[in-house]
Write a protein that binds this DNA or RNA. Structure first.
Length: 492
RNA sequence: GGCGCCGUAGCCAAGCGGUCUAAGGCAGCGGUUUGCAAAACCGCCAUUCGCCGGUUCGAAUCCGGCCGGCGCCUCCA
């Protein structure tokens, strides 16, 4: 099974919006693999483009260097998020000869024409043009500006652009130039996955013109469909000035809309588009993954710091259990080995109250995933599983006096959580403390203070102990006293 | 103007014709527990799904209108 996702144009550091598609498709690949499919996942890198040229001129560095830097930024961010299921990251500039051959064939077949060193796709030759985005040539304005004069029809789009002085270029039968925006996806997807392949994905904003034009090129080239299924993810939007997440903005009837009430806007058009690596200084990558998959993939996601904090809070419920689990069993939850395939998952005894319940919850999780990748519903089930596990720990007093046979049942039950959270790419390793003050010295100093406080508590000097806890709390460090000792963590 | 999406509790969010007097989470409120907190556990927190009509034995779910929000319409994931 072949999947192709449109990746970034690497001219600026990527923001959180660029992470939505990769996380969703990472989950898709994980789930499909879990179901037993052999999946090849491709995400392309567009490393030649007008915006790259403009940015490289502005910064006074070669386009290739800019692209390399931004590609590395992109890879680092994907890695932080645990997106490690991608098989190929083809780069447009590595496919120039393929593209030239591809364009030549389109000209030969009468779908493209050369004009003053540019090559354009002739959309009038393809009656079905516009079928993906449900629009017709009559409805469209087409592109104005300087390119318009060279085109037969205003809706024709560039396959090859003649180089202007000072622009990076490659030799071609039509003179030195560079590829147009859409051609790399047609060429690289065909090269790596064949045509048609199974799923083509991208942001909702790419349906037109990008994907429409890919279809035109690919169908013009071979007469075959490009992809069997199209999957477009909702866009991430930034919350408004007030930081309010709610998009409804109810106000008393008759009251005028005030200046401040600006609606949430698309990230690329707002100041919410902070470089992703800066965001990671304040929030854990797992919170970002959680945010992305807590909404159905086709819906827009509202981004705000408040929302990410909420995700951190949700995750902490799981982390606390994992700590308890390790205390009880002596094993790390993160390293539990669990079935990696749906059909390898063992039958759990229906008559066991705990394990029978887990079996039903597991079933519900899978039903959600089968239903158009309802990750939000599936995560809801994960919380119900967590609740069952916590309840069992409480009822059996496993932290105080763990009976071996009950511990064994807990491990079996937790293995179900391990199996299912793997499918979502969650909890794959122990979370690192995040926050600007999370360096090692700080952590050791906090450990020291906590030890001193423990001594005070032993001496029943509760006034001092409480004062330390309060003051640390003011610094964003939260303490929890457990029978087994004190746990602390940063709270952003 | 054209094409399309959305409106569920204070907030986020699932639900897509009956099992919905609507999952799950955040926040909040009681209780168990705790030196006190926190966490965990027990319980509470939308008879109602933007508004108005219609279809149906039955609607948050389908249709129409209205109100409100958002995206795309040539280079944004």
């Amino acid at each position: 099974m072949g999947i192709y996702l449109c990746g970034p144009t690497v001219y600026k550091p990527c923001h959180i919006g660029h992470m939505v598609g990769p996380v969703i498709f990472d989950v898709i690949k994980r789930y499909m693999t879990y179901l037993g499919y052999q999946v090849t996942l491709v995400i392309n890198i567009t490393d030649v483009d007008d915006k790259l040229i403009a940015e490289s001129h502005r910064r006074g560095i070669p386009m290739a260097q800019l692209a390399q830097e931004m590609t590395e930024d992109y890879f680092r961010n994907l890695q932080a998020l645990g997106v490690d299921t991608v098989d190929h990251f083809p780069r447009a500039t590595h496919y120039i000869p393929h593209m030239i051959e591809y364009i030549k064939r389109l000209i030969d077949r009468g779908y493209a024409y050369e004009s003053q060193g540019d090559v354009f796709f002739d959309v009038t030759r393809l009656p079905q043009y516009g079928k993906l985005s449900n629009r017709t040539l009559e409805q469209m304005q087409g592109e104005g500006g300087e390119a318009a004069a060279k085109k037969r029809s205003p809706c024709d789009f560039a396959l090859w652009k003649a180089a202007k002085p000072g622009e990076p270029s490659w030799p071609s039968p039509w003179g030195p130039g560079r590829p147009g925006w859409h051609i790399e996806c047609s060429v690289m997807s065909q090269h790596l996955l064949g045509q048609p392949f199974d799923i083509h994905g991208g942001g909702l904003d790419l349906i037109f013109p990008h994907h429409e034009n890919e279809i035109a090129q690919s169908e013009g080239y071979s007469g075959e469909p490009l992809a069997r299924f199209w999957l477009h993810n909702g866009l991430m939007r930034a919350a408004d000035e007030t930081g309010k997440v709610g998009g409804r903005h109810t106000r008393p009837l008759g009251q005028e809309e005030s200046e401040q009430e600006q609606a949430a806007a698309k990230l690329s058009k707002s100041k919410g588009a902070q470089p992703f690596r800066e965001l990671l200084e304040q929030f854990s990558p797992e919170a970002v993954r959680m945010l992305i998959i807590s909404t159905h993939y086709r819906s827009p996601i509202l981004f705000s710091p408040e929302e990410l904090r909420r995700q951190e809070e949700r995750l902490r419920r799981f982390y606390r259990f994992f700590e308890h689990f390790e205390q009880i069993t002596g094993e790390s939850f993160y390293r539990l080995s669990a079935p990696t395939r749906r059909d390898e998952s063992p039958q759990l005894p229906q008559d066991d109250p705990l394990l029978g319940s887990l079996a039903r919850l597991r079933q519900r999780f899978l039903e959600y995933m089968d239903d158009d990748l309802n990750t939000a519903g599936a995560i809801g089930v994960l919380f119900e599983i967590l609740h069952e596990l916590n309840r069992f720990v409480q009822q059996q007093k496993l932290l105080e006096q763990p009976a071996p046979e009950q511990v064994q049942r807990l491990v079996q039950a937790a293995t179900v959580l391990r199996e299912l959270s793997n499918v979502l790419g969650l909890f794959r390793q122990e979370p690192k403390p995040t926050g600007p003050q999370s360096d090692q010295l700080t952590r050791e100093l906090i450990d020291l203070i906590v030890q001193v406080r423990a001594q005070a508590r032993r001496e029943k000097n509760y006034a001092l102990a409480d004062q330390i806890r309060d003051r640390l709390g003011q610094l964003g460090i939260r303490l929890e006293d457990h029978p087994q000792g004190t746990r602390w963590y940063f709270q952003s």
